[in-house]
Design a binder for these strands. Structure first.
Lengths: 242, 242
DNA sequence: AAAAGTGGACGTGTATGCAATTCTTGACTT
DNA sequence: AAGTCAAGAATTGCATACACGTCCACTTTT
């Protein structure tokens, strides 16, 4: 096996103008996740590959790969010689997802305490304070708030001292991003999040790992409550139960 | 989508005698994991699909699927249009794996406390006591010890009240099983594990969640120490570094 | 008539072929 | 001589083809 630096170029220069070959699988995963959380399939429903392939206009190959990825996430079951079976993706499962995230990320916060550059924490605190004072609610504000949110969680994951733990946290962040996309933008959750983020940053800057971990726990529980409330009250509407 | 009960028969009766079609992927995943932990590839090595396909005597399709599963585990990186790149799988990464397992399983133990049938705990305690008193070291003993080990961890996962958390724990158990297979049977670790298991069961039976969680932490740290010691001292021999 | 056996439709697992992209080696320009 | 560009080789992503397994309805047997 050659040990070369792979993928040195993000994208080759000469092919920039050409319409690059679309890589279907990532988008398939996203669309399948959205469909799952929208309640399109009940737990136990079979998901035949040909049906999904026709629906998304691709062949079975990328569908298979997408299904395997979703099975790795744990939202469908993949039985040998038998195909994919949907698992429940309701509020109970969302609660469980947030709980695991809480376990992972609170521990990461505890470990990251004292290992993040004070300058970065100060900059983040300033960002959150500014967002808090000028609490607008337009899309630009929302996007900026989300960026700061992501920055904090990424900072914690990166500094926790365990790259595998960081990877698991990023996996759950992606999953929760899909859930948020399913239930729509929750302004209230974002407003609440700013204060919770500030508490986390405050504890991190003070070098108090237990308080920081506890603040992260509260933050994730709050986010879970908002998401589940939105999911329960009228967001299973797209495929209502009879 | 039809909502039928799929795969009712574990295996159809009339095809029992027939040599069933081998499903290559699961075995491929196992062999690739063993190769990774054996240090066959350095971090950064590219793993071309055709090379692996020829080596294992299958086509690219099952190799691709196996690589995707390993990428989901996080032991290789899969860059779009660029293929698989090996990540480091040394003692540091094994340490990280055990740390995440510790985080997940100690929390699961805390939650499972008081939710496991006392009869099952009593039976497990009796098993461990018998194994401890008659500390033989043959293969049958080892296998029985491993069965009791697995039973305890499975009991905790099942009773923790969060099926997703249980799923993550099972994923890590499988991964660690591969690591154990790589470094060989560690008799000392198994002997030590019995006492640690007994402490866990004791705390669970006493209904003391914090003590149970702490006992699980100690147990997993001990297992990590044994595995890493074995990995460092002479188990990277199969592909020694120059 | 009930249980067991059988055939075919449906679906998955794998192999192979093709298009697009990336990597590499060589020639060319400054 | 060093850097730049380009063409060919190598490799990935997807589509298609085929073999096998599963499941259901029907036939056969007792």
């Amino acid at each position: 096996m050659q040990s070369l630096e792979p993928c040195v170029n993000p994208v080759s220069v000469k092919t920039l103008a050409v319409i690059s070959q679309p890589i279907y699988k990532p988008d398939l995963v996203r669309r399948l996740l959205l469909a799952l959380f929208s309640g399109e399939w009940q737990a136990g429903d079979r998901l035949p590959e040909v049906e999904l392939a026709e629906r998304f206009g691709v062949s079975r190959t990328p569908v298979r790969e997408a299904l395997q990825e979703i099975a790795a996430i744990g939202l469908i079951e993949l039985r040998p010689n038998c195909g994919a079976v949907a698992r429940a993706c309701g509020s109970e499962e969302v609660r469980e997802i947030y709980e695991v995230r809480e376990i992972l990320e609170s521990e990461a916060t505890r470990r990251a305490c004292g290992r993040i550059a004070p300058r970065k924490l100060a900059a983040l605190a300033a960002d959150f304070l500014e967002l808090q004072s000028a609490h607008r609610r337009d899309a630009a504000w929302s996007q900026r708030e989300w960026a700061a949110d992501h920055q904090l969680h990424e900072l914690v994951a990166h500094a926790c001292g365990n790259q595998r733990l960081a990877g698991e946290i990023r996996r759950y962040d992606q999953l929760i991003q899909v859930i948020r996309e399913t239930v729509g933008n929750l302004r209230e959750a974002q407003v609440a999040a700013i204060g919770e983020h500030l508490e986390i940053v405050k504890a991190l800057r003070a070098g108090k790992p237990e308080q920081a971990a506890e603040a992260m726990r509260r933050h994730i529980r709050s986010a879970a409550d908002h998401a589940i409330a939105a999911l329960d009250s009228g967001h299973a509407r797209t495929h209502a139960p009879a």
